[in-house]
Each structure stands twice: as structure tokens, then as C-alpha cells.
Amino acid sequence: MTKAISIQSAAVGRVSIIIKALNEEKRIARAIESSLRALERVGGEVILADSCSTDQTINIAKRYPITIVQLANSAERCCGIGPQLGYQHSSAEYVYILDGDMELRPHFIDQAVQFLDAHPAAAGVGGQVIEHNLDSLEYKARVERNAHHMNAGQVDRLDMGGLYRRSAIEQIGYFSDRNLHSYEELDLAVRLRARGWRLHRINFPAVDHHGHDAAPYRLLYRRWETKYIYGIGEIVRAGIGKPHFSLLIKQLHEFKLYFLSIIWVIAFLIISIFCGFFLKNGLAVGGGVFIFCLLFVLMTFLIRKKTFDKAIYAFVSLFMHCAALIAGIFVGRQDPGKKIDSNVMSNY
């Protein structure tokens, strides 16, 4: 262990770094050590919010002077619950959220604190994300979707982590929606922006993101299995009737794609059924119409993506996300402001 493990011994400083983790035994030490080093100048606390890891994550984390809290109920695991769990146990003026497969770059926290001190209208600030898993189709698709969110300047959300002002979070009621299996950063962003707060990204390296190595289709299946891709429907349901709903729909570009795709498929399905009942050789004609619908979508992806493997992946991903949109809207919800049941494994 580095000398950084001795940093968190004084009273809480200005920054709480929340590391959310699930089975990160290979990377958690680097995430913790980089967080402790990041607090050397500004002071603060590191809180590991663990979602019931079954590997050595907790045992490794106990070597460091940090607070460790763990979900009491593993059935509640989702991306949104980790940040809120850590926030419950934090106390500093500013709060940073870090994934367990990331490492904080030296001096970013210093730069971020200086930025928020100088810009009182800013609720949060992020930096540049250094990706290390550059070859996966999932990474390439994420870059295509989110490139504009990652540029320096005023942004509409802080994907991949950011430093937030506690007073802004208190104004909107809670940090992260405990019900969301994904899209928790966007949900936080639109709630803040609907209250007049701003978000910024500075041109300074913030984190190294190592990600998880997995074949693209295996990863897609795992995200369905864990309900990660239900997030698109969950965030829409969460926003219905809320002041930020119109802003959410405006920013949720993929929702429009999935919604229109669902309408497209339903329309062709209705035409196919009509052909099957009312035309001679109707079943063949109806089936042909529906196959044409699917081939049209596939060819559109092929033109846009330029390679067959990317087109097939986008095609499969599209229809899985369309199904997840529908499923996510009907997932049950708890009060996002309700205290999360947890166990304190280590307290500093």
C-alpha cells in the first residue's frame, strides 16, 4: 500500500469521494488509493458503497482508512442505489462519485474544487475520461452516443463521474434515484438543471476508466439479465408528472429512437396481420411485409455503421432496448428519498 492510505485520519475536509462497487476485487485497491491521494490537499473522506460483493472487494477495502457501507438487501442492487447509499453516509461540502473500475487522476479534485468555489451557479463539474478498453463494440457505441457530453464546457450531464455541490443536492431532495438500473447521471442532471443549476466539464484529466472485458453480445445479455438496460424505461416513468420531465425527454435522444422503432414495428405487425387475414396467400404476404420491415432497419444500420458486425450489433441492441423500454416503465418503484437499509462494515 502507498503512503496515501494514511491520508484519511483527520476530521472530514471539503470532499466526500463515494466509490460504488460490486465485485471489483481486481481494481478496488487502485480506486481507493487514487481517491486517498486525491484528498491530500483539500482533505476529506472516502466511502465505499458496496452492493453486496461476493468476492474479496470488502476484505481488500478494509486495509484502508475508509468508511465501508454495504447494502443490507442484495435484491436492491442497481446503479442508482450505490451513489445514494454513499451519500447517506457522507458529510463534506462537495461529493464525488467514482466507479470501482476507475482511478482518479492526481490533482483533478483540486481543480474541481477551485472551479466550484469560483462558479457558485455550478452544481457539478467533471473532467476528461481516459478510456483504456478501446476495442469493444460497446465502448465504440458509447463514444458515438456521448461524444458531445464529454467535451469541455457547459454540459447537460456528467456521465462517468463528477464533483457535486452538496447544497444543490439538498435542494433537489436526493442524490441518486435508488430505483434506476442505469441513467442515474442523467436523472441527477435534469433534476438539477430544472432548478436552474449548471453542469460543466473542464479540460483536465479526471479518471482512468478500465471497464470490464466481455464479448459485446455477452455484455448485452448481462445487461438484460441485471436489468441495466431497463433504465431507459425506469427514468421515463420516474419523470412523469415531475417539473423536469420535458427537459428529460428533450435530452433523452435514444428514447425517441426506441419509441419510434416500437411504433414502426407495431405498424408493420398490424399490416402483416391484416394481410394474413384478408389477402390471398395472406400469411406469406404478411410475413414478407414484416421481414421487409426488419431488413429495412438492418440495411439502415449497415449504411450508417459501414461494417456488418457493427450493424448486426446495433440491430440486436436496438430491439433489446426497445423491449427494455417497455419493461422498465412497468418496474415497481420505491420512494427515492427513503433511507436505504445498509450495514456499516468499517467507519472512519
Rank of each mutant, 00 (worst) to 15 (best):
I5W: 10
Q8E: 15
A11G: 14
V12E: 03
R14N: 10
V15I: 14
I18H: 09
K20M: 13
E25K: 11
I28M: 05
R30S: 11
L36H: 15
A38M: 06
G43F: 05
G43R: 09
G44V: 12
I47M: 05
D50W: 02
S51E: 10
C52Y: 02
S53C: 02
T54P: 00
R63P: 00
L71P: 02
A72E: 12
A72V: 00
N73A: 03
N73G: 01
A75K: 12
G82L: 15
G82W: 04
H89Y: 05
H89Q: 03
S91E: 04
R105Y: 10
P106K: 08
H107W: 14
H107L: 13
I109S: 06
I109H: 06
D110S: 05
A112L: 04
A112H: 04
V113I: 10
Q114S: 15
F115P: 15
F115H: 10
L116P: 06
H119F: 08
P120H: 10
A123Q: 06
A123R: 08
V125W: 12
E131K: 13
E131I: 11
S136V: 07
K140A: 07
E144Y: 11
A147P: 05
H149C: 15
H149Q: 10
N151T: 11
R157T: 12
L158P: 01
M160T: 12
M160L: 14
G161M: 14
G161K: 09
L163G: 07
Y164F: 15
S167I: 12
E170R: 11
Q171V: 08
Y174A: 03
H181M: 07
Y183E: 03
L192W: 00
R193K: 04
A194F: 01
R195H: 07
R195V: 01
R198P: 00
H200M: 04
R201N: 02
F204E: 00
V207H: 03
V207C: 08
V207R: 05
H210I: 10
D213M: 09
D213E: 08
D213C: 06
P216I: 14
P216W: 03
R222F: 07
R223I: 14
E225P: 01
T226R: 09
K227E: 15
Y228T: 13
G231K: 06
I232R: 01
E234V: 01
V236W: 09
A238W: 02
A238I: 01
G239Q: 07
G239N: 13
G239P: 08
G241Q: 09
H244C: 05
H244K: 04
L248E: 02
Q251K: 08
I266Y: 04
I266V: 15
G276N: 12
F277A: 10
F277I: 09
L279G: 11
F290N: 00
I291D: 03
F292N: 10
F292S: 13
L295P: 00
T300G: 13
L302P: 06
R304G: 04
R304N: 11
T307R: 13
A314W: 02
F315S: 12
V316E: 06
F319I: 14
M320T: 12
M320C: 14
C322D: 13
I326V: 13
I329L: 14
F330H: 08
F330V: 12
V331A: 09
R333M: 09
D335K: 09
P336F: 02
I340H: 02
D341Q: 07
D341T: 01
V344F: 06
S346I: 03
Y348P: 08
